[in-house]
């Protein structure tokens, strides 16, 4: 018991080992000033959504709103009230694609990453190199072949045209594989000796340890499905019932200058979900390795 407390105490102290106050202050001043510049778009987007029309067009643009109003949001509701497909349908599509795609991608990519990182099977090196190399090929020229494949598979104008390719994104596999590489082999060996199957090891040992990795991957996947939805959906989807919120918002923006107010409101609304997910996942990224109970 005493020993354990001692260890805990030392762990707490170790956070502050090797730190000098002077450098601390200097580094955090740097951090603060950079953070100020990075925060500009966030502040701008939020205050823009509440600006009355005359403040939006003032030049040079003002950062903060002077007379906040909700008019942009009420205008937005008016625009939607006479839309042909109920707005809730677009919302459903967006959430359905984002959630299914993200969950699916995290599971499929992690399942493939585990053998590549930890099981030395014939072909593992070659497959992994293929993944890394494909990350460096400009996606622009693969659009035409991609469209052809999707149409051969009869996926045009279905959710699958967006979901299936997103399950096999390269970034996720690479990220998960790199994190899984750090898991000590001894831990997996021990589990194998205890009679656990590879599937069990993957799900109950590997996945909890690499929690920081898949929490991060959730952000990447969600972000790409959330905002790039319009890009892919207007390529592969033409029936109005299957389109996403992002696409509709793009249509509002194409209404021109008159719509500038509602567009500002829309920009803010579209950021709420990614930012919420971002904050939730980021504050859950905490150390997992030391709690895995392995001392080598």
């Amino acid at each position: 018991m005493n020993n354990r407390m001692n260890l805990n105490l030392r762990l707490k102290l170790s956070k502050r080992l090797n730190r000098s106050w002077a450098v601390d202050i200097l580094l955090f001043l740097l951090l603060g000033s950079v953070a100020f510049f990075m925060a500009i778009p966030l502040i701008f987007t939020i205050s823009n959504a509440f600006k009355p029309i005359d403040e939006i067009f003032v030049f040079p643009p003002r950062m903060l709103v002077r007379h906040p109003t909700l008019k942009n949001f009420t205008d937005l509701i008016n625009i939607f009230s006479d839309s042909w497909v109920p707005f809730s349908r677009y919302v459903f599509n967006t959430f359905f694609i984002a959630i299914t795609g993200t969950v699916g991608h995290v599971i499929v990519a992690s399942a493939a990453a585990y053998p590549l990182a930890k099981i030395n099977f014939p072909g593992s090196k070659m497959l992994f190199n293929l993944v890394v190399m494909s990350l460096m090929f400009t996606a622009y020229v693969t659009q035409v072949p991609n469209y052809m494949t999707i149409s051969w598979l009869n996926l045009i104008n279905t959710y699958w045209a967006i979901l299936l390719p997103s399950l096999g994104m390269t970034l996720g596999l690479y990220l998960m594989k790199q994190f899984m590489e750090q898991i000590p082999d001894a831990l997996l060996e021990a589990a194998k000796i205890d009679g656990a199957s590879e599937y069990r090891i993957f799900w109950t040992i590997v996945m909890p340890i690499v929690k920081p990795a898949w929490l991060t991957l959730i952000i990447f996947s969600l972000q790409s499905l959330w905002t790039n939805g319009s890009v892919t959906s207007h390529k592969y989807i033409y029936s109005e019932q299957l389109k996403t919120v992002d696409y509709v918002f793009g249509q509002i923006a194409s209404g021109g200058l008159v719509r500038t107010g509602p567009v500002a409101a829309v920009t803010l609304l579209m950021m709420i979900v990614p930012i919420t997910v971002f904050i939730v996942t980021q504050s859950n990224i905490i150390q997992t390795m030391s709690t895995s109970g392995l001392k080598e």
Binding site: A112, P115, I119, S134, T142, L173
Partner: peptide, 20 residues
């Protein structure tokens, strides 16, 4: 088991990334 785990990913990856 390793091949079973990688199959879903690499089927999709092959179709939508390697082939194009």
């Amino acid at each position: 088991h390793a091949y079973a785990l990688i199959t879903p990913y690499f089927l999709i990856f092959g179709t939508f990334t390697v082939f194009p």
